[in-house]
Simulated assay, not measured.
Amino acid sequence: MKDWDYEELFEAINESYVEFLANGRGEKFAVARAFNEYADMGIIEDIITDVAIGEILLSQDKVYIGYMKGITSRLSEVKKDNLKNELSSEEIENLLGRIAVVITELKNKPIDSNPVA
Rank of each mutant, 00 (worst) to 15 (best):
K2D: 13
W4P: 03
D5V: 08
D5S: 14
D5Q: 14
E7T: 10
E7K: 13
L9R: 04
I13D: 03
I13S: 02
E15Y: 04
E15Q: 11
V18E: 15
V18H: 05
E19D: 09
L21D: 06
E27N: 08
E27K: 08
K28F: 10
F35R: 12
A39T: 08
G42V: 04
G42E: 07
I43N: 10
E45M: 13
D46R: 01
I48N: 00
I48T: 01
T49S: 05
I53Q: 03
L57Q: 10
D61R: 15
D61M: 11
K62D: 12
Y64D: 11
I65P: 01
I65T: 09
K69C: 06
G70W: 13
S73H: 15
R74W: 10
L75Y: 12
S76W: 07
V78F: 09
K79A: 11
L83V: 13
N85D: 14
S88C: 10
S88M: 08
S89A: 14
S89W: 06
E90I: 13
E91Q: 15
E91W: 07
E91K: 07
I92V: 09
N94R: 13
G97H: 11
V101D: 03
V101L: 11
L106E: 06
L106M: 09
K109I: 00
I111M: 10
I111F: 09
S113P: 01
N114R: 03
N114Y: 06
